[in-house]
Amino acid sequence: MAAADQHSGHEGHHTTTGISHNKLLMWSFLASDCMFFGSLIMMYMVYRPEMTDLGGLGPNDLLDIPFSSLMTFVLLMSSLAFVLGLSSLQRGNEAGMRIWLTTTALLGLLFLGGESFEYMKFYGEGLSIGENIFGTAYFVTTGFHKIHVGIGVIWLLGIVAMSYRGRVPKERSEMVEIAGLYWHFVDIVWIVIFTFIFLVPYR
């Protein structure tokens, strides 16, 4: 067990539960965030039947599936880049970790840029957060997701900056793993949003 921990870059967990309390804290936060995003997505689904005829400003008129699909691929690939970065650090390759985490942050920024472009396009068409029920449900749900992505990008760039100062060695890989839990959660929330807001047909 000790050898396995050393190999994976884990510190020994001398806690009352025998597991990392930092990771437990992050998992508890993610569990509560499930309820938060679950409620937002539920709100969208409940009001979706009322969004069929909104005078050209409804989901059927505005949602751009090919573009959002591209953004989905970008976010999925950012998760892949992150795990490759974590894997590099666990092998003691700090430079590799920095490259992969910077790639992850750049993909996150690309996602935010793309989604902001879509926001501006919608706004140009006349849809604002208070325009109709679709505007409110769409901007609130995806807006909170974008805030999460933005926090994730700042967190990742912070880790890269700390690594340049030698403060993220292999032995402290758990701090990167915890940031990864957050980043991957943002990814799975988008998986659900993409399915229920963009793809599922409502007739």
Partner: peptide, 26 residues
């Protein structure tokens, strides 16, 4: 990617509890 397949079961239970309550609320 989040390593629940290998991590301590306690983490899975915490996350599942959150998912369960979220599903109940929905």
């Amino acid at each position: 990617y989040m390593h629940l397949k290998w991590d301590d079961r306690m983490f899975s239970w915490f996350f599942l509890a959150g998912m369960f309550v979220a599903a109940a609320i929905i």
